[in-house]
Simulated assay, not measured.
Amino acid sequence: MEMNELPFYDMSDNPTGCCPVFKPETWEGVTLHFKDKPFVRAKTHSVLHVPVDMGKVFSRVFKHMEDSGAYEASDFVVMSRDLSSWKAEHLFAANKPVDAEEMTTLSGEFVTKVFEGGYREAKNWHNEMQGLATEHGTQNAEVWFFYTTCPRCAKIYGKNYVVGLARL
């Protein structure tokens, strides 16, 4: 992939009007290269890794991004990771600053792997991503996940794809 480019995510293939149909083959085994790529940073609360305010936080961030013109459908990803059993961090790709939200940038190379299944598998996926990073020469990699569909859409589509991203 080119610098700061993401795999194509077809937002027009959206029968639910919520989350588009995810095409796993476009994200599988890709290496992403970021250099000062801008993101909105948001945090959610969890109880033993189970998010409790994700819907509220994501709705707020997306509204602020759309209001400021920082949301670009062709440059879409939300990278999420647990900071503890009680808190998670989420990075929303943005094409310009969003005044009402915290901004950050991200640099580095990230290798991807697509998983399918429920959230309860996240620990196993995290371990697989660590193994993949080790194969690429990185120990104790920072691992993020891109949850491609909300629970309602995953139920409708019959698949729950999650992309693992390990920083090399």
Rank of each mutant, 00 (worst) to 15 (best):
A100F: 04
T104R: 05
V162S: 08
P97V: 07
V47A: 08
T31Y: 11
F110D: 00
A73C: 04
A166G: 09
N95R: 12
T149L: 06
V114G: 00
M129R: 02
A73R: 09
L165G: 05
P151L: 11
F22K: 10
L165V: 00
P51E: 02
N140W: 11
L32P: 04
P151K: 13
W125P: 02
T44H: 04
V143W: 14
F145H: 09
D99A: 15
E142F: 04
P24H: 11
S84Y: 06
W144I: 06
F39D: 10
L48E: 14
H33G: 12
A94D: 11
K63T: 14
P24F: 13
Y161D: 00
Q139M: 11
G117M: 08
G17V: 06
R167L: 14
E5M: 10
A70D: 02
E101D: 11
M54V: 13
D36L: 06
H64D: 15
R152S: 12
L32C: 04
E66Y: 14
Y71W: 08
A70E: 05
L91S: 01
V143D: 04
G29D: 11
V162E: 05
P7V: 13
F34A: 14
V57F: 11
V52H: 00
N127I: 13
A100V: 01
F92I: 03
V143P: 08
G158N: 09
S59T: 09
N160F: 12
M3S: 10
M11G: 03
T31S: 12
G118V: 09
S46G: 03
E109R: 03
N4C: 03
K23T: 14
L6T: 12
A94H: 00
D13W: 14
A100T: 05
K56Y: 05
T105F: 01
N124Q: 09
F8I: 12
K87D: 08
K96T: 04
G108R: 08
V40F: 03
D67S: 09
Y157F: 11
V163T: 01
G117A: 00
